[in-house]
Simulated assay, not measured.
Amino acid sequence: MIILRLLWQIPAGLFFVLILVLFLNEYATARPSRRVKDIAYAATNTPGVDAERHLLDVYAPRKAPATARMPVVVFIHGGSWNSGSKNLYSFIGRRLAKQGIVAVIINYQLSPAVRVPAMADDCAEAVRWTTQHIADYGGDPNRIFVMGHSAGAGLAALLATDSRLFAKLGMAKNPVKGAILDDPAGLDMFDYLTKLEYPNDQQYLIPYGKDPAVWRAVSPMYFVSDTTKPMLMYSGGRTYPSITSSSQRFHERLKAHNVNHDYKVLPGKKHVAMVTQLFWQHNLVYRELLAFVGAGK
């Protein structure tokens, strides 16, 4: 009887220790940063503006450098283009800020309310807001990078390759200096939706519609050029086959145009683990990201 009681207590004790460690880690990470949340990046009196989805949060170090502005990373969440929220990714904002980066975590409109072209426009609008206001938070408007996971990484890649998104907003040039793509989805939806070779593929006809011209127009694969911004790319060794295939082809396209980039496959990582690994500050992605954006310079 005593042994049984002890066996029941061990998992509970380990669980308590784990929760305590996670809490202390999060507290230690949060203290050096400050968060300003729910900032509207589109004029609230504009038709079509969503009071919840056109919002972003800014995370900045509490002790900013006295003389230099910090690099900026705009993070775009994933969620199959129909779910997700900036509120789930505060851990990324905190960890970036702790390491000398001003992080902007954004919301954007989702399917079925809108389709992917409108989502890309939202993300471009959020980047434009960043160029105009990030200096108020210690960020350098001339060093803005985009980052995302899954669908968000596909949108980040589009921002870095298709400057028309910013031209529509009246911006003379693309302000994105580079992109960090974490297990990107949507790099070539023209190919993906033309083939429909995987189970349940037709669900993506809701966010993308049924016009192949639209599929191509929001696929970063077709906008890579000799002037494409530098990139860091990561995919999981056990991620979805479609992400493995499109990431490899995107990598080859970048190489063909001599785009400065690095592509790594992380052994054993599944799709969700590719983003949850960012809970750990000293993760490989963060280490390489810091050098990529020039943190501390």
Rank of each mutant, 00 (worst) to 15 (best):
L4E: 14
A12L: 13
L24M: 08
L24K: 00
N25A: 14
Y27L: 13
R35W: 06
V36S: 12
V36G: 02
A42K: 15
T44M: 07
N45P: 00
P47K: 03
D50Y: 07
D50V: 05
A51F: 10
L55S: 04
L56T: 09
D57L: 03
A60I: 01
P61W: 12
T67C: 01
A68E: 15
M70H: 09
F75S: 04
G78W: 08
G78C: 12
G78E: 13
S83F: 09
G84F: 11
S85H: 11
S85Y: 01
K86T: 04
L88V: 03
L88Y: 12
Y89L: 05
S90M: 06
F91C: 04
R94P: 00
R94E: 06
L96T: 10
Q99K: 13
A103I: 06
I106S: 01
N107W: 08
N107D: 08
S111I: 08
S111N: 00
R115N: 10
V116P: 02
P117L: 00
P117F: 03
D121V: 04
D122I: 00
D122Y: 01
A126Q: 01
V127I: 01
R128Q: 11
T131I: 08
A135N: 05
D136Q: 15
G138S: 13
D140H: 08
P141T: 05
P141Q: 04
I144A: 03
V146S: 00
A156L: 02
A157E: 09
A157T: 02
D162H: 05
S163P: 00
F166I: 02
A167R: 15
K168G: 07
K168D: 14
A172Q: 09
K173V: 02
K173N: 09
I180Y: 11
D182C: 06
D182H: 06
D183F: 07
Y192M: 10
T194K: 15
K195C: 04
L196W: 03
L196H: 10
N200L: 14
Q202K: 15
Q203P: 01
Y204K: 07
L205P: 07
P207L: 04
P212N: 13
V214P: 04
S225F: 05
T228W: 10
K229C: 01
M231S: 14
M233C: 03
M233N: 05
R238S: 12
Y240L: 15
P241W: 05
T244W: 10
R249S: 09
F250R: 02
H251K: 08
E252H: 10
R253E: 14
L254H: 12
H257R: 14
V265H: 00
L266I: 15
K269S: 02
V275C: 08
V275H: 07
L278H: 11
F279N: 13
Q281F: 00
L284N: 14
Y286P: 11
R287I: 03
L289F: 07
L289V: 10
L290D: 11
L290P: 05
V293M: 08
A295W: 09
K297V: 11
K297I: 02
